Simulated assay, not measured.
Amino acid sequence: MVKIMECIPNISEGRRLDVVEEILAEVRQVAGVTLLDYSSNADHNRTVISLIGEPERVVEAAWRLIVKAAEKIDLDQHQGEHPRMGATDVVPFVPIRGMAMEECVDLAKGLGERVGRELLIPVYLYEKAATRPERRNLAEVRRGQYEGLKESIRTSERTPDYGPSVLGKAGAIAIGARPPLVAFNVNLGTTNLEIGKAIAKGIRGSSGGFVNIKALAIDLSEQGLVQISMNMVDTQGTPLYRALEFIKTEAAHFGVPIVGSEIVGLVPLEAMMDVATYYLGVHDFSSEQILEKRVFGF
């Protein structure tokens, strides 16, 4: 069986689409790697990229992307609503077929060592690759963002796993291994960020909410919105509809409407099936009832 691994790099550029295309071109040049999807958000000033292929080829594509992003993105000039600490902010490896998580961890460590040694970019290993318990959580790794890390990186607590304890314009990067997750955002019809913060606090696992949800409130006041931005780390344990219904209930408490939602990047079919069966009230629905699955066998 051919081993297949996915990588979902997030780069800190979502406005200069010509720069995004230059970075994507590096991925497209790697034989055996498929660029599955990418999504740029100007408010977040961030692009989420999904690529897949055999592990060694995916690692090479990730390396080239990191090199080009470091060349093209200056964190001293970067502004956006999404937390970030690096030009390439995060690079997670996800086992898809024929791979154990431990293999993804080893590849993350190998890439991290190379980035630190050759590019002199500080690297933090996170999630399953973390070398410290507190670094399993990306939010903790990225605490203080680029600006705050400039000072705190000199402390023993924030010493990177690879690379120097000093930040250049490319910032730092988190490299790790994790299971698949879904990036799910819900927009509130308000500009009151405090309402968004209260709802995000209520839903995220670290503050007593759903253990499978990481969430923060993002100010999109120029659009007349506040966004609840979530990483759904286990959509079987906590389905998308459960997160949406919780946010609906909390928003109604504040007299605020839900005005839309979005999924950034890719989503497993099973996660969308759960949503459809919940809202349609369908009983005993099976993936075998999906026409394309029966015809094409995917």
Rank of each mutant, 00 (worst) to 15 (best):
S39P: 02
I49G: 04
S40Q: 10
N41E: 14
V30A: 02
I49L: 11
H44N: 11
V59C: 07
P55N: 09
V48M: 07
E56F: 02
T47F: 10
G32R: 08
R57C: 00
E60H: 03
N41W: 00
T47P: 10
V30L: 00
I49A: 01
G32T: 09
S39D: 15
G32I: 09
G32D: 11
T34C: 00
T34E: 14
A31E: 15
D43A: 13
V30D: 05
L51I: 13
E60V: 03
L51Q: 08
S40H: 11
W63N: 06
E54H: 11
E56Q: 14
P55H: 06
L65P: 07
L51H: 08
A61I: 01
L51G: 01
I49D: 06
V33G: 04
V48Q: 02
A42G: 10
I49R: 03
D37A: 12
V59T: 09
G53R: 00
I49N: 04
A31K: 15
V58P: 03
L65K: 03
V59D: 00
V59W: 04
R46E: 11
E54I: 08
R57A: 12
G53L: 08
S50N: 14
H44T: 01
L51F: 13
V33K: 06
V30S: 01
I49E: 07
Y38N: 09
A62S: 15
S39W: 13
V58D: 07
L36P: 02
T47C: 12
S39Q: 14
R64I: 04
V33D: 00
A61D: 02
Q29W: 00
V59F: 01
N41C: 13
S50K: 00
R46Q: 09
I52P: 04
